[in-house]
């Protein structure tokens, strides 16, 4: 099977030849090319070459066009802070007072060089990689982007106490998110990963998500012209699996705080799961630990398909070594081959 066949089969809740593996590597291409993280993201051709080399080395089942979280905040006037040993971080939020939402204007994707650079990388990668491997584009959800637009505390105040401003912000963010997602799909992305950590019960109560975040997700995802995966970036998902599935998303990205078997039971037949290896712990895994963790995850969620093995936060930390990534990839091939006869009726 090709990677795309493998992925589509599992998304149909059937068993492909083996469990698909998404190594969500955004920064490691810089290591491949001997560049700093800042220089790596400065030119689309670096990202294209990095993604091609990473897939050649690890043999995983996707290309990942995620650059960094503050990319979209940049379009709204935000600052990106580069560090040598990790993902670029958001600087001071561009909005410091809730009143600024009243006069906020919608940015245009084509006017933001950082975003058009991602589109150029997507288009170039698509022309070199062809159709056999999914290219994953990324957006921040309208409901979660305000953490970078306003800062977390001010956003919580707007979310919980200022309904009119919240509604205006969501309308703007929805329009931006849809334009940005569809631009990536037109450039060649196969699917869009919709990062929505604020949706998680780790951040807001399920009642708040159902009242405020889920309608935004439904409306936004229905206007994105391709398949989507909702990622909670290590946040809990179990209490809202059905709510997430009803937004039209095909996949939920899950962290390791909840039992994967319970998530699989809740998601069964409705939505597929992506996860749930612990990226931070992965920085210090031995080869044996990597194999054990891969085996645990596949044993819990692999049977019957509907599962893609991945790191659970949505981005493999810079500190994870090549040896560990190779150990994960090797273990995924070894223990992920269907049928999973080594998994008993009660798990591995």
């Amino acid at each position: 099977m090709t990677s795309i066949e493998r992925v589509l089969t599992t998304l149909g809740h059937n068993e492909p030849d083996r469990v698909p593996l998404f190594l969500l590597l955004s920064m490691h291409g810089a290591k491949e090319l001997g560049l700093s993280i800042r220089d790596y993201f400065a030119r689309p051709e670096h990202v294209v070459e990095g993604q091609l080399r990473l897939r050649e080395r690890y043999g995983h089942d996707c290309y990942y066009l995620f650059h960094h979280a503050p990319l979209e905040a940049q379009a709204w006037g935000g600052e990106v802070v580069f560090v040598e040993d990790g993902p670029p971080n958001s600087g001071e939020p561009p909005l410091t007072r809730a009143e600024q939402i009243d006069h906020l204007e919608l940015p245009v994707v084509a006017d933001c060089a950082a975003l058009t650079g991602v589109l150029a990388a997507t288009s170039a990668l698509k022309s070199r990689a062809g159709d056999e491997v999914p290219l994953i584009g990324v957006v921040m959800s309208p409901f979660s982007l305000p953490v970078m637009q306003l800062g977390f505390e001010l956003y919580l105040q707007v979310l919980l106490e200022q309904p009119e401003r919240f509604a205006r912000l969501m309308a703007l963010n929805e329009a931006f998110c849809v334009e940005w997602a569809n631009a990536q799909l037109r450039a060649g992305a196969t699917a869009i990963c919709y990062f929505d950590p604020v949706a998680s019960p780790t951040i807001v109560p399920p009642t708040t998500y159902r009242a405020l975040g889920q309608p935004v997700a439904r409306h936004t995802l229905s206007r994105i012209e391709g398949p989507t995966a909702t990622h909670l970036a290590s946040g809990r998902a179990l209490p809202i699996v059905d709510d997430l599935a009803s937004t039209g998303t095909a996949i939920i990205g899950v962290g390791h705080d909840e039992p994967l078997a319970a998530l699989k039971a809740a998601a069964h037949g409705k939505v597929s799961l992506l996860g749930n290896l612990n990226g931070v712990a992965m920085c210090r895994w031995t080869g044996e630990q990597a194999e054990a963790e891969v085996k645990r995850a596949i044993g819990a969620a692999g049977p019957g398909g509907g599962f893609i093995l991945a790191e659970g936060h949505g981005e493999v930390p810079w500190q994870v070594t090549d040896d560990t990534l190779l150990a994960v990839a090797d273990a995924a091939r070894r223990w992920g081959a269907y049928p999973l006869s080594w998994v008993g009726d009660h798990g591995p």
Binding site: E153, L156, L159, P201, T202, I203, V204, T208, R236
Partner: peptide
């Protein structure tokens, strides 16, 4: 309760 997933960060904040 937040550690167990029973309350949210928003409730901890409030």
């Amino acid at each position: 309760a937040w550690g167990r997933g029973e309350v949210s960060l928003a409730e901890v904040y409030i």
